[in-house]
C-alpha cells in the first residue's frame, strides 16, 4: 500500500511516497513505525499509548483527522494520505505544536473547584449516578486536538478557545461536586470564547471518542444564558 506523507523539514512542505506491505489488523500507526524503522528514520510523528487513550497520534488520514493507532489500514483508500493536523503550527513532519491548545484548556480551569477542601480530614464528595450521567460522556475527551483541527472558528480566530477546552469547561460546570461554575462561566463568556462557535458540527463528526463537543458547547451556552439572567435578578 502506498502512503503519501506530508513532510516538513523546517522550511518546506512536500509529499513523500512510501510503500508499506500491509495485512489485516495493521493500523496506520504500525505503518508509520514500519516507515520510520525500515525506510526513512527521519520521519517524525507523535505517539504514546498505541490504544486510543493518550490522543497523541492524531493526524489527518485521507483528509479527515483520526487517531493513527485506531485506524485500520485495510479500510482506507489507496494511496493513504497522511498529513499533520490543521489549525496547529507544524514543528516537523506530522508533529504539531500543542502548547497553545493546552494553554486554552488550562484557561477554563479543568479541575474541581471547592472552597471546603480539608486535606487533613478529607471527606468524600458524594455523587449520584444520575449526576454522573450529566457529564460522564464529556469526561472521555483525550485532548487529541482532532476537533480543534477542523473547527472553522478556531481556523479564523486564534483566540478562540476551541471545542476541546469548551468541552472541559462544560464537563466541570455540569459536575455536581464542583463549586466553580460561576468563575468558569465568566471565562467562557468572553468575546473570543463560547459565542464564536458557528455550529458547523465538524468537531462532533471527527471526535474519535464520539463525545459530541458541539452538544457540550450548546449546553454550556444554555448554562451561560441562565447565569446571565440570574445576574440580572437582584
Amino acid at each position: 500500500m502506498i502512503f503519501k506523507i506530508k513532510r516538513f523539514d523546517g522550511k518546506n512542505f512536500y509529499f513523500q511516497d512510501f510503500e508499506v506491505p500491509v495485512k489485516k489488523g495493521l493500523t496506520v500507526l504500525d505503518c508509520l513505525f514500519y516507515i520510520r524503522d525500515c525506510i526513512d528514520s527521519s520521519l517524525s510523528f507523535r505517539m504514546s499509548c498505541r490504544m486510543g487513550i493518550c490522543g497523541s497520534c492524531a493526524v489527518r488520514i485521507n483528509g479527515k483527522p483520526a487517531l493513527a493507532c485506531e485506524t485500520q489500514v485495510v479500510n482506507l483508500k489507496e494511496p493513504v494520505k497522511i498529513e499533520p493536523l490543521d489549525n496547529f503550527k507544524v514543528l516537523k513532519d506530522l508533529v504539531v505544536e500543542f502548547d497553545d491548545f493546552f494553554l486554552k484548556h488550562k484557561a477554563v480551569k479543568p479541575y474541581i473547584i471547592r472552597n471546603d477542601l480539608n486535606y487533613k480530614n478529607p471527606v468524600e464528595f458524594i455523587q449520584k449516578p444520575e449526576e454522573l450521567k450529566k457529564y460522564y460522556d464529556f469526561s472521555l475527551c483525550i485532548k487529541c486536538g482532532a476537533c480543534y483541527s477542523v473547527c472553522p472558528a478556531a481556523a479564523t480566530n486564534e483566540k478562540y478557545l476551541g471545542p476541546a477546552a469548551l468541552v472541559a469547561a462544560y464537563r466541570f460546570v455540569a459536575d455536581s461536586r464542583d463549586r466553580g461554575a460561576r468563575e468558569r462561566l465568566e471565562i467562557v463568556m468572553d468575546d473570543h470564547c463560547l459565542w464564536r462557535c458557528h455550529s458547523a458540527m465538524a468537531c462532533s463528526e471527527v471526535c474519535p471518542k464520539k463525545i459530541e463537543p458541539a452538544k457540550a458547547i450548546q449546553l454550556l451556552r444554555r448554562k451561560t444564558v441562565l447565569e446571565a439572567i440570574r445576574r440580572l435578578i437582584p
Binding site: 472553522p152 455550529s199 458540527m201 465538524a202
Partner: peptide, 17 residues
Amino acid sequence: MIIKWFKPVSIYDLAFS
C-alpha cells in the same frame, strides 16, 4: 484565513459553508 470556512471535512462542514 476566511477561505478555511470553505474546507469541508464532512457533510456538516459543507452545510456550514
